[in-house]
């Protein structure tokens, strides 16, 4: 009986679902941002900051940032468990660093959205 204590959703099925749902949200956010930048080639600060001052855009962005945190955590957990499988200490150190980085990005993102 193997009890894995490091995978994000605590079960493979939960990880699988988290990864798919967050992927769809991130895909929609990516299409929106890339589309917005493509259709506004002469973008200025007024329009750009105006977009991010809208409540719906802040909520959409926060949803994307939370999805990004979950998606990166699940994905990088899979990659580190697959390739750092012989060095448990290094893997735990790398995974701890990844979780801290994910946390920093999430806090940074929230600060950007609501102003530091």
């Amino acid at each position: 009986m193997v009890t894995n204590i490091t995978n994000p959703g605590r079960s493979g099925l939960a990880d699988w679902l988290i990864q798919r749902v967050s992927a769809v949200i991130l895909a929609l956010y990516t299409l929106f941002i890339v589309g917005y930048l493509l259709f506004n080639p002469g973008l200025d600060y007024i329009a750009w900051s105006g977009l991010f001052s809208q409540a719906w855009m802040r909520i959409f962005s926060l949803l994307a940032f939370v999805s990004l945190a979950a998606h990166a955590w699940v994905g990088l957990w899979i990659v580190t468990t697959d390739y750092l499988n012989k060095w448990v200490g290094i893997r735990l150190a790398v995974q701890t660093f990844i979780i801290l980085a994910v946390f920093v990005f999430l806090v940074w993102g929230i600060q950007v959205l609501w102003g530091a």
Partner: peptide, 11 residues
């Protein structure tokens, strides 16, 4: 994130 932060910080 740096680009997003900086671009929204000021003109």
């Amino acid at each position: 994130f740096w680009a997003l932060d900086k671009s929204l910080s000021s003109p």
